[in-house]
Simulated scan of single mutants.
Amino acid sequence: MTQRAVRGPLGVAVIGTGRMGADHVRRIDRVVSGARVTAVADVDAERVKAVADRVDGCTPYTDPAAALAAPDVDAVVVASPGPAHEAVLSAALARGLPVLCEKPLTPDAASALRVMEAEQRTGRRLVQVGFMRRYDREYLDLKALLDGGSLGRPLMLHHRHRNADSPPWFTNEMLVNDSVVHEMDITRWLLGQEITAVTVLRPRPSGNAPGGLDDPQFVVFETDGGALADVEIYVNCRFGYQVQAEAVCENGTARVGDASGMRVDTAGRWGGGIAAGFMERFEAAYDRQVQAWVDATRRGEVTGPSCWDGYAAAAVCEAGVRAQAEGRRVEVELAPRPALYR
């Protein structure tokens, strides 16, 4: 069964109007073609009204269910906190509404599995998970290179994920669930392999790390295709936001994420700019992701990361948090992959 195509602009409800949700409202209203924001929902009545007032024809709601039921809503963007995702996704699936859901799909594997099972009962894919790195131009180029086979079989991936600083409430578990989750997904996507085990190693913490946060950490993935991937996660590096990946293959290597903007040589020094944060670094990827979702939804299709990808990421996160806490290698437990996602 396929979903219906949409004639005219896609009417989108954005659930959650915090930093990410408000940015998606701006993106759909001003950047993306073929869609308009017709509803926004948030428990914060003042905030949701302020966001709605900036968009012509947009109605604010404090109840997500009411926004989903609005007659001018054809599809949904979920940008609320992770614990609220399952309820919104379940309601959207019950109405047959296509969804772009910011990661995580849900905060744990059990609830992600429930969402995946609910989608299967509809008989078609309706949910895309917002792993935006898959839409970054450099990662797309690396994926095409690896799939082309000119470098031979990928043997290892080296990832570096650095933030200038972290909020005081950031925890060790969040290093895995909120940060390294991106490397989990991009590793699976680049290699076309599932992650089977996780090990987390911790050096002596940086003096820049807030009390109680073991930062940086070193995470190692094993895959069912025999590859290894490592992640340096360092969220208090102080110098900016930096994401890099290097693939080591049988016949060569390829790396993305190096600063490719203008280099300046002056006064005995050379250098360039480093992004301040993830939204600046991946702004074009977010734009490309949402445009692709809108275009596919209007055609009656879902083409991006699936509920299976969201579930797999949640399962790897759980293994990663256990490996982190117990100081040992932990195997990933995955349910059989349903036919809908093959």
Score class of each variant (00 low, 15 high):
G310L: 02
D108M: 09
V76E: 05
L190C: 05
V51A: 11
N163M: 12
L340P: 00
A285L: 04
N172C: 13
T17K: 06
H161T: 05
G240K: 06
D53M: 02
Q193H: 15
L190K: 01
N177E: 15
P71F: 10
V290L: 15
C249S: 12
D265F: 12
T171Q: 05
V235H: 05
C249Y: 09
A285N: 01
D309G: 07
S150Q: 12
R125E: 11
L201V: 01
G268R: 06
A65E: 11
C249D: 03
L201R: 13
D29I: 04
H158W: 00
T303H: 10
A144S: 13
S80P: 05
G327W: 08
V77P: 03
G18C: 10
V25G: 00
V127E: 05
D74M: 08
L340R: 00
L97H: 06
V12I: 13
I274M: 15
A65G: 10
E102F: 01
C237Q: 14
R255T: 15
V321W: 01
A84L: 13
A84G: 09
L146T: 09
E183A: 14
P64M: 08
A323F: 07
G327R: 09
D178W: 12
R238P: 06
T62G: 09
Y341C: 08
N236S: 14
Q128V: 08
D108R: 14
A94P: 02
R202V: 01
T223K: 07
N172D: 15
R26H: 14
E246D: 07
L228F: 12
L228C: 05
A50P: 00
T38P: 02
V200C: 08
A296L: 10
Q3S: 10
G18K: 02
L145S: 10
A284C: 03
L100Y: 09
G82D: 10
L100G: 02
E173A: 13
T187K: 03
P81M: 07
V78G: 04
D72I: 08
A70H: 12
T62F: 08
M156Y: 15
E232H: 00
C58F: 01
L68K: 05
V220G: 07
D141E: 15
D295N: 01
R299I: 11
Q244R: 15
P338Q: 00
W308C: 08
A144I: 07
R299N: 04
V243Q: 03
P338S: 06
N208P: 00
A313L: 03
V77G: 12
Q289N: 09
G207C: 09
N172W: 13
L142W: 07
A325W: 02
V180H: 04
